[in-house]
């Protein structure tokens, strides 16, 4: 059975490069990724305790380069960048997890039904999902965010709209192939109802690829969220947010104030890398034939 996950996530491309770098198969990737994720999760959970200053109020002079008092420097309003990056992790992860949950909650059930029932329903759902899928991700998210407005939930929903078709496609295609497996027929032969077959025989067999899509999706959701905030469609200031800090910082780049964009940017890169490593490692573990596709 083919369970490899072919999706258009940016992080999938990152993962392929990483796999070459790590010479694959060692489980190191998943480990390094997991370590990064744990660090970020802890930073987000204990941001209030770790952060030396309040991220939304002035804590020193403006435009201070990194020093022992402000290890990431201060921004144009004199706010501590280190505290902002820490608190930014909370927002980034919160929105990413919400977006992924919403996307999965839409895409997985629809994919299951569409693949299992087939026929006209399948054709219509596939058509709709393909139409959504054909938009460039960020553009679609901007359109939805512009309609819904700012705020954590709205941003999460607009990101979810972009990624729901990915779940749908992965699940639908897998279900369509699993449907003709002998064990599904055997389940029918022992008298199982369709619902029972769907949940006890089909779903467990598509779950491994769902897990991989989930973790890849988290990486992309973080990038999309940062992109939206960068464009001013994300979280309303003064809430600390990496994307917003990036766009705020780039206005002063000509003054050589590199720290204002370097640290939020690095945070995004490292977190996305963490998710990519983790998902690619997971993919390798759960779907061992993936490496053979090149």
């Amino acid at each position: 059975m083919e369970t490899q996950v072919e999706v258009r996530f940016l992080s999938a491309g990152i993962g392929r490069v990483l796999r070459k770098f790590f010479r694959s198969g060692s489980g190191k990737m998943a480990f390094v990724g997991a370590v990064i994720l744990i660090v970020f999760l802890l930073a987000a959970l204990f941001a209030d305790q770790i952060a030396p200053y309040d991220p939304t109020v002035r804590s020193g002079r403006t435009f201070q380069p990194p020093s022992s008092k402000h290890i990431f420097g201060t921004d144009n309003l004199g706010r501590d960048m280190f505290s902002r990056v820490l608190h930014g992790a909370k927002i980034a992860l919160l929105i990413a997890f919400m977006a992924v949950l919403i996307a999965a909650a839409i895409g997985i059930p629809l994919g299951l039904l569409s693949g299992y029932i087939g026929g006209p329903l399948d054709r219509i759902l596939t058509l709709i999902m393909d139409a959504v899928y054909s938009f460039p991700g960020l553009i679609l998210a901007i359109a939805v965010a512009a309609v819904l407005g700012t705020g954590v939930t709205n941003i999460a929903v607009s990101i979810a709209v972009v990624y729901a078709p990915t779940y749908f496609r992965v699940i639908r295609n897998q279900v369509a192939s699993i449907k003709s497996e002998l064990y599904v027929e055997a389940a029918r032969a022992i008298g199982a109802r369709n619902w029972t077959i769907l949940f006890r025989y089909v779903l467990p067999n598509v779950l491994p690829s769902v897990v991989v899509v989930l973790s890849m999706n988290l990486a992309d959701a973080i990038m999309t969220e940062a992109g939206l905030s960068f464009l001013g469609l994300g979280i309303a200031p003064p809430t600390p947010d990496w994307g917003y800090d990036l766009s705020n910082g780039q206005r002063f780049i000509l003054m050589n104030d590199w720290w204002m964009i370097m640290f939020p940017g690095l945070a995004i890169i490292v977190l996305v890398l963490g998710f990519s490593l983790f998902s690619e490692g997971l993919n390798e573990y759960l779907n061992p034939n993936v490496g053979e596709r090149e």
């Binding site: 002998l182 064990y183 389940a187 025989y201 467990p204 067999n205």
Partner: peptide
């Protein structure tokens, strides 16, 4: 085929 007729996750 006994392997194919058993759900691998059951």
């Amino acid at each position: 085929d006994p392997l194919a007729s058993l759900n691998p996750y059951m």
